[in-house]
Design a protein around this nucleic acid. Structure first.
Lengths: 206, 206
DNA sequence: TAGCATACTAAGCAGTTGCTTAGCCAAGGT
DNA sequence: ACCTTGGCTAAGCAACTGCTTAGTATGCTA
């Protein structure tokens, strides 16, 4: 799991120690929250002294920022790639929810930091990820609008529906994993089916 | 808003100063998080010196615990009262989502503390609210099962559906309020309609 | 060989934290 | 008149925070 975590954070360009620090920080931030995590926690989890952290990151906030930016970009890339596929809107929405949901379950540690430690970011860094979030939401709204136009969806409030779709996935980072909870892929398939019905696709009488 | 907050927290049994402290703590915990909030923040927001807090609460954690317990009980009471009504399952589910959602929007400060500062609780206090949460989830599952039995709902995975219903409402505490966002009542009505479709009620061909 | 950069550690600094102490003061009982 | 009680404050303590400093070991380059 830590290996996957490292891969998911790891720009190949980053030196090994920086990746180790990011992985350690993700674990601590996700479990205890940013403010309850000390630089000593992170450093010792990465097998270093506290001061060694500052060779690779100028501050604790910069570490959070790096994690948040990377995570947000990963999520946005996922959304972008699915939405751009050459498929009908219903199929794209199904795959979007399945994959986005699956990512939040599989990478629930990163996702939790990304979704819930947002407000600990310095203003400038917050502005960057806020833009990535707006773009993600915009893409989902666009897909829903597409589906309405093609008659695949039946939705009154596009904005509200988009928020609901994202809410379902995002909230997974809060509770996953849970005792006897489903595997990420199952969860994704289940939620995709629920969302399609929510959007009025599939089982209507036309 | 602060008045409503006080009312919602305020057992009539509590002295005025304790209620003022709880209201101040809710605001701070919701905006900055438990760990980023200092006892000095809370005390000065309640118009006292730091030491005065300890006359009414034995620790900062005890304050959180009081807020969390009160909020969880409010939410559970709401769910219990709606589920117990003498109505068809679909109507009860509609009202449950509408009211539960509305509460999370209206009381988004309390709700945020209740839903997201859970892990800062001492173990014993956590156990208490965890039980309240399990009961809430159980009631929702039961309502869905009722609806399936009466043919009102069409759901494969009851557990997953219940989690999805609660997720939608809980996640509101994360983002509400939002620029040009809907009023709590509108939000409730909208989400209730989405959930009914999600559960396969209403617009099926039977 | 000398010079320099990188990655690290041990020690510690200044500021902040939750909480405690000692004491003040007005209200109420006897 | 005297004592107790409840609610408060000013001052401060020990522990801990993010971060810095000074110095060390290693490897690369000239």
């Amino acid at each position: 799991m830590t290996d996957q975590l490292r891969m998911d954070l790891g720009h190949r360009t980053q030196p090994e120690a920086a990746r180790r620090l990011m992985a350690a920080a993700v674990t601590s931030f996700a479990e205890r929250g940013y403010h309850a995590t000390t630089t000593r926690d992170i450093a010792s989890a990465a097998g270093m002294s506290p001061a060694a952290m500052y060779v690779h990151f100028p501050s604790k906030a910069a570490l959070l920022s790096a994690i948040s930016r990377t995570g947000h970009r990963k999520a946005l890339d996922l959304v972008r790639s699915v939405v751009a596929r050459d498929e009908p809107a219903a199929k794209r929405m199904h795959d979007l929810v399945a994959e986005f949901t699956c990512w939040h379950a599989q990478q629930h540690l990163v996702a939790r930091v990304v979704q819930y430690e947002l407000h600990a970011l310095p203003d400038e860094d917050f502005a960057v990820v806020a833009e990535l979030r707006r773009e993600t939401e915009r893409l989902v709204r666009e897909l829903i609008t597409d589906g309405i136009a093609s008659g695949a969806f039946d939705v009154d409030d596009v904005k509200g529906a988009a928020r609901a779709v994202l809410s379902l996935a995002i909230d997974i980072a809060r509770w996953y994993p849970h005792a006897a909870g489903p595997a990420p892929e199952e969860l994704g398939q289940g939620y995709a089916a629920l969302v399609l019905r929510m959007l009025g696709a599939g089982d209507r009488c036309e």
